[in-house]
Each structure stands twice: as structure tokens, then as C-alpha cells.
Design a binder for these strands. Structure first.
Lengths: 223, 223
DNA sequence: TAAATAAGTTAGATTAGTCTAACAAATATT
DNA sequence: AATATTTGTTAGACTAATCTAACTTATTTA
């Protein structure tokens, strides 16, 4: 299976994305994938048949969609490129973390194994992208993330922001306003049982944040 | 006229390229463009009609193809991106000058005005790419190249390599073998009237090169 | 369990870009 | 000027990716 179209790559990446994120009920259907890609279910149906014919996905009529190991490895390579380009844009060109995604969506389809190895080297072989997401290595392996959700941190404990679960501009810009950034320190002051919200201290200043926010921030405890 | 497909951009770039290079008989026809793009004349014919409908080219049935000013400005933007990416690959990632073209062909289609300005800055606002070709500025203006062909240099004169006319791997690799590189010095020893070949001195060593070669090397005289 | 709803599929149309093969116009050659 | 050659055009077919509208299967709910 040699050169895939950008569209085919995007489908594979979307399947990988859904299967990594919703690890629980990793049952991916036509409608869900269509919604994720912004196309109609009938389009997905057609493309899945095509990808199946190329042995990149497993699929039975009315069944669920999964990647074959070949498909997964292609998708991992695309994800690797995406995250390396995000890191490049952020670290070398000063793009803010809410701007990198859109451009990386385009750059991830550039076909040149040499280029991506050179960029990896140029960036100093990073393990995590500007959102803290793990960057697959040359062999498609994801570095282990030992981070947990901020929601699970006990009051009195201090921790370091390691990644975000939601990479939408809206969320990232909100974090920016709260001065919450990657590698920054957060101290949990109090948990409010009533609504699950939390009082935290960022750069010395106390702030209250909803559970929707703490759920989407991944941290490691400071020892 | 807003977003063009990569194919449309490639056609415009090819027309610009032909009209810059063959300045003399700047008459571009269907066949010539087809040969340059590696497609059939009938495909070109169809695409030219499409580009005409978008006011990007001027064209009459059985006539010659020219860019409108709108078309030229689009093509210049693509050329700018191409040459900036070539410079990036060469200067920052250590690609050799015969490797940059192919990858830049893909990168030139990335749509992000911000990205290209950032790359321009990151590279220190270069005026020439790794082949010595001029990089159009933000407004589509080409820096003036005051270089002439090596063929026109008189014996006894020393000059500096400024650019190459042919950027094929074959030619570039050949130059590499002759130790001829951008900014390098060449001294013209003798011109052979019989076949137009030339004896030159590169890094102190005398070599004989055919006119086909000297025609494709652009130099500026050392004063 | 039967009806209602959700999820998935199919057929047929559309668009962009390409091709081949046949034809027409323009240019060059004798 | 007549013919040959080159150059350019048209019609019709193909592929990839999408859509809409109608239909089928599976799941949920009353």
C-alpha cells in the first residue's frame, strides 16, 4: 500500500483519534466518524469500503470500524507529523498554542521521510507537542503519559500542567486568560463538593474553575 | 477569487515559470505547458478554460496563454512560498540544493499567510534561494538579479557564482562534482571557439566545461 | 414485543482533473 | 499554392470524493 490521498490519510487519522480518545467504548461507527470529519455518513461508508479493500481498516456491513495494524501504523505516522509540525510552529516560529493545529493539518500530509526526520532532529527529538500530547516515535510508539486529570488532585497538593485534553481554540484561549500554561504550576486549594468546581492558585493568585475545565487539564503531581 | 486548488496553483506557477524563463519568445501554448506539467494538451485546454473563467489567464481559442495581473500575483505568491521553503530546507535542515525542489513543491501549497511571513522572518528575509533564484517579496516584486551567463565572461576575468538556470538534480549533482557552488569563485582561463567550451579554474584547479554548462551558470564579475 | 428512533447502506448525481481518440486550425515545407 | 506537419480542440469516458434521497437494519422505549 503505497501513496495514499490526503483524504484517505485524514480518515485513518480520525479513526485513530477516536479510538485513542474514547478508549472506553472504542466502538467507532459511520455516523460518529462522519460527524468528526464533517462529512455525511454515506461518504464515510464509501471511503471505509475503499480503505477495507486496501487492508487499512477492518469492517463488516453494519459493524464497527477498526484499524488494521497496517492502517494504525499509517495513522501513527500522520499523527507524528502533525505533532512535530505543531511543535515546530510553536517552538521555532512563535505560533501560540491555539494557532498551531490548523496549519499542522495541512503540513502533516507532506510526503518526505527525510524531512520529518530532519525536523525531529531540528526540534531536539521532542516527546510532547505544544498541547502536551505525546509524539509517536519513528516506529509509531507513543511515549507514556503519566499525567492525570486536575480533577483528581487533592487539596493542598501542587502539580505541573502536562497536557490538555481539549485542544479547541476556545479552551486554549480561556486557559491563556487564566495564566495556565504547559509546565506551569497549579496548587489545588479547595474542592467544592456541590458542583465539582475547584479553587486553585496560579502564579500566586487564587481562581475558581469549573469541573469542565479541571477535567480537561492533565497534570503530574509535584513531589 | 479565493481559494484555488493545488492543481490550479500549479498551472499558474508553470505559466509564470515559462514566461519568466523564455523571456524571448514568451508565447506559451497548450502543448508546451502540457509538456512542462507532464499532462496531456487536452487537460491543459480544459484547465485554461477554467482559469480564464476565473480571470486568472487571458486566452482565445488557438491563441497563446498569458497571466492576468491577478493570475500573476497568485503565481508570484506560490513562487515566493516555493523559494522560501527551499531556503528553509537548505539553510535550516541541511538539505542539499538538489533535494530541496521536490519537497518545496509540496510545501508551497500550504495556505497560511502568517506562516509564510514567519518563515521569511525566521530565515532573515532572504533575497535568493539555494539555487540563487530571486525570492519575490510580500508584494510579489522580484529582487533584481544583475547576473549574466558564465558564457559571456571574458578570459582572464574572475567571477562569483550567483545562480543556476537549470535546477535539475542531474545538473546540480554535476556542479557538485566540479566543486562549483553558490558564491564560489570561478576564473575564466580560455574560450574554445570551436565548440564554445571553456577552460575555467575552480578552487585553483583548471577544468574544461561545455557551453551547455556555462550557459546555465549565472555569475557576477568580481571587480 | 411492537412501534419508534437511531444508525447504517444504497443508488444515482455532481465536481475536479485527467485520459484517449478523432478532428480542426495554423504553420512549415516542398 | 498544395500538401504535410505541428499544434490545438472537442467529445466522451474514468476516478476520487462528495452529496441527497430513499431504503434497511439495529437498538431503544413504551
Amino acid at each position: 500500500m503505497f501513496v495514499l490521498t490526503q483524504t484517505e490519510e485524514n480518515y485513518l487519522k480520525a479513526i485513530l483519534h477516536l479510538s485513542l480518545n474514547e478508549a472506553k467504548k472504542a466502538e467507532i461507527g459511520t455516523n460518529e466518524l462522519a460527524a468528526h470529519l464533517g462529512v455525511k455518513p454515506s461518504s464515510v461508508n464509501a471511503m471505509i469500503k475503499n480503505l477495507k479493500a486496501k487492508s487499512l481498516v477492518d469492517f463488516e456491513r453494519y459493524g464497527k470500524i477498526t484499524l488494521t495494524s497496517e492502517g494504525k501504523s499509517v495513522a501513527m505516522r500522520v499523527l507524528r507529523k502533525h505533532r512535530l509540525w505543531e511543535t515546530f510552529l510553536h517552538d521555532k516560529l512563535d505560533f501560540s498554542w491555539d494557532e498551531v493545529h490548523e496549519v499542522a493539518e495541512q503540513m502533516e500530509h507532506i510526503q518526505s521521510p527525510k524531512l520529518i526526520e530532519k525536523i525531529d532532529k531540528f526540534l531536539g527529538y521532542p516527546s510532547f507537542d505544544p498541547h502536551g500530547d505525546p509524539i509517536p516515535d519513528k516506529d509509531g510508539r507513543l511515549p507514556k503519559m503519566h499525567a492525570i486529570s486536575l480533577t483528581e488532585i487533592e487539596p493542598g497538593t501542587s502539580c505541573r500542567v502536562h497536557a490538555v485534553r481539549d485542544s479547541s481554540s476556545l479552551f486554549l484561549q480561556h486557559l491563556e486568560r487564566l495564566s495556565i500554561r504547559l509546565e506551569g504550576t497549579i496548587k489545588v486549594v479547595e474542592k467544592i463538593a456541590f458542583d465539582g468546581s475547584m479553587v486553585i492558585e496560579v502564579e500566586g493568585k487564587p481562581t475558581s474553575v469549573s469541573q469542565k475545565i479541571t477535567d480537561n487539564i492533565l497534570v503530574v503531581e509535584n513531589r
